[in-house]
Design a protein around this nucleic acid. Sequence first.
DNA 1: TGTACATCAGTGAACGCGCGTTCACTGATGTAC
DNA 2: TGTACATCAGTGAACGCGCGTTCACTGATGTAC
Lengths: 210, 210
Amino acid sequence: MTEPLPAESRQAQKERTRQLILSSALELSQTQGFAQISLRQVSRHAGIVPTAFYRHFDSMDQLGLALVEQSFSTLRRMIRDAQRDPQVFDHIIDAAADVLVEAVKQSKAHFGFVSRERVGGPDVVRSAIRHELDLFVSELAVVLARLPNIETWTTEDVQMVSRLFVRNMVSNAEEIVEMPDGRPDLEEKIKEGARRQMRLIVVGFRDWRG
Amino acid sequence: MTEPLPAESRQAQKERTRQLILSSALELSQTQGFAQISLRQVSRHAGIVPTAFYRHFDSMDQLGLALVEQSFSTLRRMIRDAQRDPQVFDHIIDAAADVLVEAVKQSKAHFGFVSRERVGGPDVVRSAIRHELDLFVSELAVVLARLPNIETWTTEDVQMVSRLFVRNMVSNAEEIVEMPDGRPDLEEKIKEGARRQMRLIVVGFRDWRG
DNA sequence: TGTACATCAGTGAACGCGCGTTCACTGATGTAC
DNA sequence: TGTACATCAGTGAACGCGCGTTCACTGATGTAC
C-alpha cells in the first residue's frame, strides 16, 4: 500500500481560496454593487481572516480587475461556442437571440457584474470594462464581416453595426439579469424583443445604405 | 425711508441650503457615484455641519430620491421644449439628435446622475429611476403617436419604438456625459451616430412591418 | 412702534462601529541531504 | 526512508480613521400684543 498523496498541494489550496474570494465578491456585488462591498465583508464571506486577503490580492481594486477578466472570458467563450453552431450562420438573428438569453441565464453573475460595474464601479474597474467592451466590438466586427450579405460592406459600416449589436447585447443582458427566476413568459418576451431589435438594425442598415 | 426688508426670509434661506445640499451631492456623485458618498462629505461640501443635514433630508436615500426627481424634471422640460420647435415635427430625426446633444450638454450633471445611478445607485434610487424611465417611455409614445406616418401604427408598435428610442437616448446620453469638454469633433460624431441609429430604428421598423 | 416669547436652522461634543492596514505569529506543506 | 530547515497561507491583536446618529445648545428670524 502506497502512502496517499496529500489531498491538496499548497498551490491548489491557495488557488481554491482565491476562487472562493472571487466568487464571494461576485455574489456580494450582486445585491450591493462592487464599490459598496468591503475587504472585510468579502473575507468574512470567503471564510478567511481579513489579513489573509492580502495573500491573494493587493487591494479591492485588483480583485475587481480580476472579476472583469473572469467575466469577459465567459463572454468570449459564449461567442466562440456560438460560431461553431451552423445554425448561427444561416439564421443569425434568431440564433443570436437564443444564444444571448441562454448564455446570460447561465452566467447571470458575470453579465450582471459587467453591466452594473460598467457605470457604477470604481474608476479602475469601470475603465477596464470599457476597454474590454471596445475590444469586443472589434472582435465581433471581424466575425460579422465574414457573414453573407455583409461581406461587401465597408469596414466602417460593419464596425457601426457591431457597436449597435454590442450595445443592444448589454441592454438585453441587463434585462435578463434583472428578470426574476422562473418566468419563462418574460424570458420569451425579452428574446422576441432582442430578435426584433437586431432585425431592425440589420434591415434598417441595409435599406438605408441601399 | 422705510426699513430695508431682511435680505432673506428664514424659509428662503432654508431653501437655499437645501439646494446647496442637492448640488453638492450631484457634484460629488459625478466622480465617485452617489452610493459611495457620505452624509458627512455632502455636508462638508455644502458648508454645513453634519447634523444640519437632517433639517433637510431624513437620510442619504431621501436625498437620492430628491435628485432623481430633479433630474427627471430636467428631462421632461427638454421634451416639452423640443415639441414646441416646429422643426422637430418636420425633421424629427435630425432635430432629435441635435436636441439630445444640446440638452445633455447643458444638464450633464443630471443626465450623468440618471445613467450612473440607474444601475449603480442604492436600491431605492435605482428603482425610482427605473420607474421614471418606464413612465417616460409611455409619455414619449404619446408624442410619437401623433407624428405623420406613425399615426397608423398599433399602440404596441409605437410603445416598442418609444422603448428603443429611450434606450438609445440613455446610451447616447452616457456617451455625451463622458465626452471630454471642448471636443466638438467627438460631439459631431456622437450626434451623427445618434441620427443613424434613430434612422435605423424608424426605417427598419417601417420596412419590417410592411 | 416696542417688548416678550416662540420657532427652528444650524452648532459642536460625544458615542459606538466597521473599516483598511500593520505586525509578529503559527503550523502545515515542501525541499535538501 | 528519515531528519532538519525553509516556505508561506492563514491567524489574531492592535491601530487610527471616517462614518451615521444622539443630544442639548444658540441665536437670529418670526409672531402676538
